[in-house]
């Protein structure tokens, strides 16, 4: 089933979300029917319980869709919307939903830049508000926008949930997908681009860099899978420690991998024309949003220190009990 979903998502995005559309969408253009296709595919109701008319998928089962969205740099908030629908049930409005981060004052929010949507969940205000009502008070492209809503804005209450955790999990999944895209692109470029009469992939220094890139991408993918394991106490059954570990590890992977990908691409990688930046700016955003690797690493470190010391309770035990690759029994 996982594979079918992965294939369906890749097929949909490769056909209906070409890089040109990604660029237009990021710049605020219309979606040219992409959202309707995503809706039709059932992705947006995938996390909603079956009793509620959804597909009732777990985060782990839904992961392939998010990975594919990352790989194709789909700028629409598929995961965020699916989560909002799962948590709001029948009360969820139609349209794309973003998860915002608090901006320090009521009715103000930080939202990811270049991600068109109709609604935003403001965790601090426990409200879902229409983006059409908001005023942009500041922006820091390509990272985020600062928005403010008027008091009179009519929204809707959202259930209390750990929205930071949800946002962090989504970023992990999408980043792991984006990392696969930059690996493919880097390998492809290195085998095609010739210097000194041969493909640059023939140079050992380049090969060694690409091996490190491969390692980081594998580690990130594994961390995303680890972070999606259920049975936890967080929303959707997500496990806080596993998401913390994933966001930490993927944050580190993204930093290293993006640097190598750019180095291997050379000057062409700095152009608007090449698609590489669609993935690397997405990685940058993902690293910065919903708590960076530093935030989650700090949380994980405190979680370890808060645990009572047993006679063998070292780091392996902590990992076995809280961060194992299978649901904790």
């Amino acid at each position: 089933m996982q594979e079918l979903l992965a294939e369906a998502a890749a097929e949909l995005f490769s056909r209906h979300c070409p890089p040109a559309l990604v660029r237009r969408l990021r710049a605020g253009g219309t979606d040219e029917g992409l959202w309707a296709k995503i809706e039709e595919a059932g992705f947006l109701d995938a996390l909603r319980p079956e009793a509620d008319g959804g597909a009732g998928l777990t985060p782990a089962e839904f992961l392939p869709v998010l990975l594919a969205a990352g790989r194709f740099a789909v700028p629409l908030p598929i995961g965020e919307t699916a989560i909002a629908r799962a948590l709001l049930g029948g009360a969820a409005p139609p349209g794309a939903v973003l998860i915002a981060m608090p901006a320090g004052a009521p009715l103000q929010a930080r939202i990811p830049a270049q991600r068109p949507a109709e609604w935003a969940v403001l965790p601090g205000d426990a409200a879902l508000l229409p983006l059409a009502d908001a005023r942009e008070i500041d922006a820091a492209a390509p990272l985020e926008r600062r928005l403010e809503w008027p008091e009179a804005s009519i929204g809707q209450a959202v259930p209390e949930a750990d929205w930071l955790l949800l946002g962090a999990w989504l970023e992990c999944a999408v980043m792991a997908g984006a990392l696969e895209a930059i690996l493919e692109s880097s390998i492809e470029h290195a085998t095609v681009r010739k210097q000194f009469g041969r493909p640059v992939a023939g140079f050992q220094a380049v090969q060694q860099q690409l091996s490190v890139l491969t390692e980081e991408v594998f580690a990130a993918r594994m961390a995303a899978q680890l972070g999606s394991i259920g049975g936890g106490e967080g929303p959707l059954g997500l496990d806080r420690a596993r998401v913390a570990a994933a966001k930490t590890r993927i944050g580190i992977a993204a930093r290293e991998a993006a640097a190598i990908a750019h180095a291997v691409h050379g000057a062409i990688g700095i152009t608007e024309e090449l698609d590489l930046h669609l993935a690397t700016t997405r990685l940058l955003q993902g690293r910065a949003l919903f708590g960076s690797a530093d935030h989650w690493a700090g949380w994980l470190g405190r979680a370890y220190l808060a645990e009572a010391a047993g006679d063998f309770a070292g780091t392996l035990d902590f990992v076995r009990h809280h961060l194992a690759p299978q649901e904790t029994a």
Binding site: R242, A244, W296, G298, G301, A303, F318, V319
Partner: peptide, 9 residues
């Protein structure tokens, strides 16, 4: 925390 995340992965 960083070392734990790496170990787990």
């Amino acid at each position: 925390g960083r070392l734990l995340a790496e170990l787990a992965t």
